[in-house]
Design a protein around this nucleic acid. Sequence first.
DNA 1: CTGAAAGCGCTTACAG
DNA 2: CTGAAAGCGCTTACAG
Lengths: 327, 327
Amino acid sequence: MSKPPTVHDVARLSGVSTATVSRYFGGKANALAPETLEVVRKAAETLGYTPSEIGRSLRLARSRVVVMMVPDAANTFTTDVAASVEQALKKYELSMVLANSAEDPDQQDRLLTDAHGLRARAIILQGAIDTPPLRAMAVRQENIIFVNRRPPNGIVAPYVGVDNHAAGLAVGRYFAKQGYENCVAISGPHHYSGSSERLEGFLAGLGKKKPVSLLESPFTMEGGYQHGKKLLAGRRRHYSVFCGNDMIAYGLHRAAMERGLDVPNDLAIFGFDDNRMNDWLAPWLSTVQVSAADFGPAIADLIGSPSLEDKGASFILPFQLKLRTSA
Amino acid sequence: MSKPPTVHDVARLSGVSTATVSRYFGGKANALAPETLEVVRKAAETLGYTPSEIGRSLRLARSRVVVMMVPDAANTFTTDVAASVEQALKKYELSMVLANSAEDPDQQDRLLTDAHGLRARAIILQGAIDTPPLRAMAVRQENIIFVNRRPPNGIVAPYVGVDNHAAGLAVGRYFAKQGYENCVAISGPHHYSGSSERLEGFLAGLGKKKPVSLLESPFTMEGGYQHGKKLLAGRRRHYSVFCGNDMIAYGLHRAAMERGLDVPNDLAIFGFDDNRMNDWLAPWLSTVQVSAADFGPAIADLIGSPSLEDKGASFILPFQLKLRTSA
DNA sequence: CTGAAAGCGCTTACAG
DNA sequence: CTGAAAGCGCTTACAG
């Protein structure tokens, strides 16, 4: 692999200075004489020259890389959000590095250090875990954007996500209105703000009707499946379950199928996110619809517009109940 | 956002030269006196110093970034492969930039230029489209790795993927053995090597039994759905269909459900990839199982080991028929 | 409209 | 075991 050509190579071939070549590629081409422009264009084409982002980043003291950290690369919703951000970032000529923390605090902290090493323009945390290094970075004014889980207590930083309490409340009220009995919540981990807010909203929405069981699960199909097996193994065969996300709901559904239950008559299931696959493979799932595509523009604008300065900025995205047959 | 500390800051605070600081972080720490080591460590910690990858990349004339181009960010299999690569790259301290070409040649070429601008250590193309810029880059000795679709004719470059012909052959033989009637193939786009190889293998496997219809579809659920609707609208209600991938199969399945057909008695369906969701949401789908997790290590080794030099290197990954109820 | 020169943060061959 | 110095590829204020 031969070394790629540099500004110097282009300058030499076209008989101008490196400053002129740099102007040509740096968006200052209209300050150049037409013939100069042409000669530079031709030389660059001959050599196959593309400016080095590395040289440029060093000089400008800022890179064009944004790091996106996801808590679970296997969750379609999370990766859809990532795809939507990658797309929206193009408007600002930024590229996105994907990193998977797999809900592991140490792994998150390692990736945080890497992101800092890359001098990332911004770090997007879908599902932050509260750790000392995270706090240290947030305080040191790194551009961290919190998505779906709010910044830890005491940290002021931009947030993008739905109003989880309101969404939980809507589901709770719906359950109450339907007169659902034996209500159960299989929430995501309680120490994540999103989970606990959804749960609190749900309880408030149920009103006087108290749930018979409050379970806590990782945000995975496996988690929903295991809780489902346990729940449905008992004598009582009739439940109404609000799941922390669609993944949990899929797992619960599988447990119900294996047990030969009828959804929704034996078991009502409500999810959260409205995973893209639902229309095709789970057209039965009632869920809280959040549009993954809405995240990209909101997050990209937060990063790209000059005013990321106002740290407390946040975007609260809309949601709506998507009623299908499972509840 | 205050400027991050540099080697100079650390050198000043610890009273050593920048060379020494650099040695500390560059893996040459054991060449330093113990007390020097300690004083540098402390200074770096105080300042919260992490070496700039940008400075390092410029100096070393190589970056630690690998670009992964996917043809469809909505296909779980593709994103699983990406996740597996991201994971495997850690061993070599490389990070992965995700880019979505969305099967658009122009978009691919634009992203190729971006990747070159980043001076990417390697470019991974899941699903390359044959264009002049791609050829130019491949010839200029960029480190391009082709995944799932072979390099265009005349281009010598590493390839990672399954033996598509053999896989198609296995499915064709299975169809023949089962005595399936009215065989149909809904392939992916024929101009992709993977699609046509699967199809040719399938035809060879069927032997004398000629398919009644050969259809061509994008690798999407929508594509499978549209072809399915058309196919199933006719008088004949009995088909055996080999789909180009699982996404197409999901779409076809939905069309069959809407038409009230029985799978597999009215309609046998065979997919390709064994998408991770299958176990949970499509436990009925018979398909060709390819392990997304196998891609990461194979690709990472190709990039990380010093011998990417031998350009023709390729990894042929194993597959197996996963028989469930749909065929 | 254009060029000479400085400097962004790092690493390493060389000298001691 | 450690330091002074050069240079990786770029951009821009300054001068003309």
